[in-house]
Design a binder for these strands. Structure first.
Ligand code: MN
Ligand code: MN
Ligand code: ZN
Ligand code: ZN
Lengths: 146, 146
DNA sequence: GTGGTAGATAGGATGTATTCCTATAAAGGA
DNA sequence: TCCTTTATAGGAATACATCCTATCTACCAC
């Protein structure tokens, strides 16, 4: 079993990216498990172990990871969110606390669209479909009743 | 037939908004037909006939219209877009030229969700569902082939 | 009509997320 | 080890949205 192929270092190499401490730190934090992060969150987190990292590097690195297919990007409430779960899925976002959760989409296979492509888009070249439910998460909903 | 009830003036009054020249100008431009506009676009347009209007007033007015249910707000590519088509529908957006089109959703009645509410959201209080297809519109797609 | 008051506007200041620029530093191949 | 290419840090620049406040005005009561 070649675990080296799954290490962050090997992952970077496999995508033609030079292995730098900054990229390793970002990869180890972001790609470890499915998560939703903003550039600011990544910056704050990485600085704990790598205080000199700049915001610019975080943006560049996340953008590269996106271009490599290691991350997806979407927006919610005007913020850019990076998603390390790259399989097709939908989201729900709490309007109050900002929590974002993954939804198990009812798609039988990854390439399948969640919904049939509307008639009007027959001439379009569709790259992505985004679905997001907005509202109050259970915790915030309970608070708002008080 | 009381057409006055459908005039912009009557519309503002019906929603408890004072009738000012600025609000009238915005209402006449934005609520005339279904459209997607940003605050910047509204500002530029209104200034043609009302050069003194400020960006701040445009933001305030659009926000008030939204709270009255006369407009919906969503985001695309980091920009806030106001939609004067307030019936439930989905969108497609061109990644290249930014064009946004309405999609006839396959919803039999306005209150119906376009897709069944996912199991995981049973405890949530959902306020809105957003669906957007991203890609290249026919015109931009043709250009990209050249 | 007039006057008073609550609400609206203009203009500018402020905040914040993202991108751009550039000199320096470092990765990795020869 | 050296060299070339690429990455990084830091700061400037941009762009959008919101906040603040003095002035103005719509409109209601009289
Ligand atoms: Mn996700
Ligand atoms: Mn629309
Ligand atoms: Zn919440
Ligand atoms: Zn286009």
């Amino acid at each position: 079993m070649k675990t080296s192929n799954h290490s962050p270092t090997a992952l970077l190499r496999a995508h033609g990216l030079r292995v730098t401490p900054q990229r390793l730190a970002v990869a180890e934090y972001v790609l470890r498990k499915p998560m939703h992060v903003t550039a600011r969150i990544v910056h704050e987190k990485i600085r704990e172990s790598y205080p000199a990292i700049s915001m610019n590097t975080v943006y560049l690195t996340l953008g590269q990871f996106e271009r490599c297919g290691l991350l997806n990007r979407f927006e919610v409430h005007g913020n850019i969110v990076f998603d390390s779960n790259t399989s097709p899925h939908d989201h729900a976002c709490c309007n109050r606390c900002g929590a974002i959760i993954d939804l198990d989409s009812p798609r039988s296979e990854p390439s399948e669209q969640a919904a049939p492509l509307p008639e009007q888009l027959r001439q379009w070249q569709i790259k992505a479909e985004r679905r997001i439910w907005m509202g109050l998460c259970p915790a915030c909903n309970a608070e708002s009743v008080l």
